Simulated scan of single mutants.
Amino acid sequence: MSGSVDAVTPGIAGGLEVRVVARRGGFVLDAELQVPAGEVVALMGPSGAGKSTLLGVLAGLTAFDEGAVRLHGRTLDDGPGRRTPPSARGVVLLGQDPRLFPHLTALENVAFGLRVRGASKVDADAGAADWLRRVGLHDHGGRRPAKLSGGQQQRVALARALATAPAAILLDEPLTSLDTETAGDVRALLHRQLAETGTTAIVATHDAVDAVALASRLVVLEAGRVTQSGPVRDVLATPATRFAAAVAGLNRVVGRVDAATWRAGGLVLPVTEAAASLVPAGELAAVFGPAEVRIIDTPAGRPAEWAARVVRLEQTPAGVRVRTADPDVAVDLPASRAAGWEPGTTLTLAVDPAAVRFFVV
C-alpha cells in the first residue's frame, strides 16, 4: 500500500473499512481491508504475518500510527486523533480461548453481555436461554465451564458474542484448539449463525477449510501486507504467492520463459502460445497439483522430467507429501511408495505439461 493513509476512502456502505499502518519494532503492518455489511471474510497468512495485530486494531485493543477504521459509516479510529474504546465499538473479538467466566454457568456467561447492555435479569436470562438453544446447548445452561468440553465452551462463547448483536465479530483462530470432528461441528454452527444473523465477520485462520466453509472472500496477509484478495474460489485457484499456493494445496513455481520454453531449476516445460503471449520473455508462475507429479523409476529423458532432491516428508490424510528442491515441488503418493526415502534422496519426477497452468508473476 502506498500514499497517504490519513483517511479511509469512502466506498462500501454499512461495512467495515480499514486502512492502517502500525509499527511494532521492526515489524510494520500496512494494510487495507474492506468487508461489506453482512459479509464473512477469511484472513489467512503465515505465523507473524500480522493477522492478530490487525484484529487487535479493529477491536480497539492495539494502537496504530496512521490511517482510520470505519464501521457502518461511523469512524471508530483515525490514528492518534479519535479513538473509540473497545467497549463502545460494537465489535466482538473471539479467539482460541473462549474466556468464559469460570464462576458463572453457561447461561450466566451468555446473559452477562446482555446485562452489561442494560437488559433486565429476566430478559437477559431469556435471551441467553434462546441462544444456548441456537447453539445446541439448551440443556447445558446450568453447567460451569469446567464441566463443559472444549467444543461446548466455544459454543457458549459464540452464543455470548452473538447474543449482543455486535456490529462486527472478529474470530481469531477459533477452531485451532479443537479436534477435527468438534471443529467441523463448530464450523457448521458458525456458518449457520453468521448467515442467519447477517453479522459482518472476519475469520483469521490457518485452515483453508474455514475459508471455504465460512467466507465469501479471502484476504492473504504476508509480512504485514495484503498480497492477494478476492473471492475464495478465485484466490485458491490462482494463488499469487507460494503461501497462497500452499493453502490451496498447489505447487506454484516461478520460472523464466525463453523461446517458448519455461525453466525453473531442472524443470523444463513447453509454453503454449497463449501462455507465451502473457510474457514473451520473462517470469511466469507454473501452477499444478502435487497429485499431478509422478515418480519415474526409469528416466527416459523426456520433456517435463527432472531430477529432484527430497527435502522432507509430510503426512497427508491419503498418504505422504514429498517436498523436493531444485525447484520446490510437492508430490503426493501412498505412504508405502516413500518407504526408505530420507532428506537428500534423489528422485526423477515428471508432470504432464497439459496439467500445468501459467500465470503472470
Rank of each mutant, 00 (worst) to 15 (best):
A168F: 11
D6R: 09
G38L: 01
G60V: 02
G319W: 07
V268M: 12
V135N: 05
A281N: 12
A244V: 01
T345F: 11
L132Y: 04
G56V: 00
T9K: 12
W341I: 04
R225N: 10
T272L: 11
G60L: 00
S52A: 03
A339L: 13
R309N: 14
R312T: 15
A274N: 10
P231F: 10
L190M: 11
D78Q: 10
A285T: 09
H103R: 04
L54W: 01
L29R: 11
L347H: 06
D65Y: 05
V203I: 13
L333W: 02
A13Y: 15
S4P: 13
L349A: 00
R242T: 06
T75R: 05
A259K: 11
L29C: 07
G198R: 11
E17A: 13
A68S: 05
E305I: 00
A259C: 14
H72F: 10
D123E: 09
D78A: 05
A157S: 03
G15P: 08
A213W: 08
T164Y: 12
R144E: 02
D210A: 01
V253S: 00
L55T: 01
T176K: 15
A201K: 14
W341F: 06
A244G: 05
F358S: 09
R357G: 10
T348K: 13
R312I: 11
V156C: 08
V28R: 14
R82P: 06
A208F: 10
A350C: 03
T205Y: 14
R252T: 09
V226E: 01
G230H: 07
G25R: 04
D97A: 14
A237W: 01
L347W: 06
V226C: 02
A240W: 08
W306F: 06
G136L: 06
A204T: 02
V271S: 01
R357V: 13
G60C: 02
R312Y: 14
N109G: 01
V156Y: 10
A308Q: 04
V293P: 02
